[in-house]
Design a protein around this nucleic acid. Structure first.
Length: 576
DNA sequence: TCTGGCGGCGCC
DNA sequence: AAAGGGCGCCGCCAGA
């Protein structure tokens, strides 16, 4: 069953209406004063698929009210996918313009940014702008939800591969649910351990200025240069100081300095590392982001053009390894950390269909299999070649290895080469399930609404920018498909874990209680589940099954395997 | 004084 | 050991 839902301006009440499969009304509109309560009752009855404007706007408040939903259809995320597929890409705030164009209405000159929209029902602009004829004050948002849903269904059916695109839409919506739930749960974070390791690395915090260790290193650096008052965090000053010492460096990047023979290098490198931890993940970070033993970032599913997640604030996807020692499971609980090994080359094998490459991707160590097959057993060389092919390396030591790759696996090689050529010519490329890369020349207005030809709607680009775009599209077809695999894994795992939660209620006498396992971190190809220790075995099995299921759902009966490295650890830093 | 661009580095 | 693709975050720095 489908149920459309909209939130009232007060953020408490709302309206519900059951829909037929085609999006048409299947029952009366029900106005309720307590939307969370009404939805909870409905969830308890039959788990409808909720059709709503945007998970990110609606679901966090429901979670705070203790309401979890099983399924949804996220209109905003789906709209973005469909626009991309039609050769028309824009940021979420350009959606009003897109919808207006689709309906032949005037395009708003400057769509208001999200932050400027009224709280409570922030997606109003999307639907009202798009579907309200000018001057129509009786406009009904619920009606727009129905219409947009029906319109999206039709357009999904008209995509290149409707079956795949349906999976993409379902996974994107499920991913949005996971993102909200993960942000709600938070990552267990021991502020006391974080403080202890900061003191070990940096010395005690000072009321004003940097901690002791940074001050010491700064003094060492100044002594080495014979300067006084040089700021090590100012690249310009450091470059000048090296020049005065007779050393010419183009910049102060760590890998450049590492090759420089000068007494300032060693303390500089240590300074950079510690300075980063102090500014980005130090005490003030902890004060801002860790509350009641949980690090709560805001995840943005689909926030990256390739379909990867982004975060707003907190840097949850870039937590330095050094501070992960503070991520410790609750007493009696543990982490199940699952990491998809060699995901991107495996994805390349599956999407290209290269038979010989697929045979290598059926192995547990793809690089080793590749090396045995074509690189005289040189695993490092095989890895180098593969990364070079996927990322568009053009020079350096990888060239001979790339030639071997081209010769032995022509179909896989041609797959990424083709993506690069299309990109360089200003065209668009798609992931396996149909996510489309943004157009070559930035602005959405360039693309218009005309259905694009197979190979693109942008301007061909020459020179360096064209080659840069070729590297982007070359990588996009792999990275975006890898993101899809991970998203499907997440959705499948979510169902498995909540199934245990729901089904675990009938134990005899003192049997196990319902599962309380929860996903608490997702970083591109790695997922972390926090669960009671006695459930770890079941969670490990569920993760492996979900990975296998993700491979089947995307690629059918391919021989490519997608193995996971799984560890059960009390502290995140112990994983792998 | 504020702001956008950029250098630099963390993660995948 | 980086490269090369994708990000977010911090501080610097030049220009308004």
């Amino acid at each position: 069953m489908l149920t459309a839902v909209v939130v009232d301006a007060d953020g408490l009440g709302g309206r519900l209406q059951d829909l037929h499969a085609d999006g048409s009304a299947a029952g009366p509109v029900r106005q309720v004063g307590d939307l969370a309560k009404a939805m909870a009752e409905r969830e308890g009855a039959d788990h409808p698929r909720w059709v709503w404007a945007a998970t990110a706007e609606i679901y966090p408040a429901l979670l705070r009210s203790g309401v979890r939903v099983t399924r949804c259809h996220d209109l905003e995320l789906t709209e973005a996918l469909l626009m991309g597929h039609a050769g028309w890409w824009g940021s979420p705030k350009a959606l009003p313009a897109a919808r207006a164009r689709l309906h032949g209405l005037p395009v708003p000159a400057d769509p208001p940014p999200r932050a400027a929209e009224p709280p409570g029902y922030a997606q109003g602009a999307l639907f009202e702008t798009a579907a309200t004829p000018p001057g129509n004050h009786g406009f009904d948002v619920l009606e727009a939800v129905r219409e947009v849903y029906a319109h999206q269904l039709r357009r999904v059916g008209e995509t290149e591969h409707p079956g795949r695109f349906r999976l993409l839409v379902a996974a994107e919506s499920a991913g949005a649910l996971v993102g909200a739930e993960m942000g709600h749960a938070g990552l267990p974070w021991r502020a006391d351990l974080h403080d202890r390791l900061l003191r070990e690395l940096l010395g005690p915090p000072q009321p004003v200025g940097p901690p002791r260790r940074l001050a010491e290193l700064s003094a060492e650096i100044n002594a080495a240069f014979g300067t006084w008052g040089l700021h090590p965090d100012s690249p310009a000053e450091v470059v000048r100081a090296f020049a005065r010492s007779g050393v010419d460096v183009p910049n102060t990047r760590a890998w450049v300095l590492r090759h420089v023979d000068h007494p300032a290098v060693k303390p500089l490198l240590e300074y950079k590392e510690l300075y980063r931890i102090w500014t980005a993940h130090g005490w003030s970070w902890c004060d801002a982001w860790v509350v009641d033993g949980r690090f709560k970032p805001e995840y943005v599913p689909g926030g990256v053009v390739s379909g990867r997640w982004a975060t707003r604030g907190g840097g949850a996807l870039q937590v330095p390894k050094a501070v992960r020692r503070a991520v410790v499971a609750d007493p009696g609980w543990t982490f199940v950390v699952a990491d998809a090994g060699q995901l991107e080359p495996r994805v390349l094998a599956a999407v290209s269909g290269d038979r010989r490459f697929t045979a290598a991707a059926a192995a547990g160590d793809l690089y080793a299999a590749l090396a045995a097959d074509s690189f005289d057993g040189d695993r490092a060389k095989a890895k180098l070649a593969l990364l070079g092919a996927m990322y568009g390396q053009t020079g350096g030591s990888a060239i001979p290895a790339l030639a071997v790759l081209r010769k032995s696996y022509p179909t896989a090689f041609e797959f990424v080469e083709h993506a690069a050529r299309v990109g360089e010519a200003g065209g668009l490329v798609r992931s396996w399930l149909g996510r489309t890369c943004p157009p070559a020349s930035g602005a959405w207005r360039d693309a218009g609404l005309d259905p694009p030809e197979e190979a693109g709607s942008g301007e061909p680009q020459g020179g360096a920018s064209g080659r840069a775009r070729g590297r982007f599209t070359r990588n996009f077809v792999v990275q975006a498909t890898a993101a899809e695999w991970a998203l499907v894994l997440l959705a499948t795992l979510r169902t498995a874990l909540s199934g245990e939660r729901a089904a675990g209620g009938a134990p005899p006498a003192a049997g196990p209680s319902p599962s309380r396992a929860e996903m608490v971190l997702f970083v591109h190809d790695e997922v972390v589940v926090h669960c009671p220790i006695e459930e770890a075995g079941r969670v490990v099995a569920a993760v492996h099954e979900s990975a296998a299921e993700a491979g089947r759902l995307l690629f059918g009966d391919t021989a490519v395997r997608f193995p996971l490295d799984v560890s059960v650890v009390g502290a995140y830093a112990e994983a792998k």
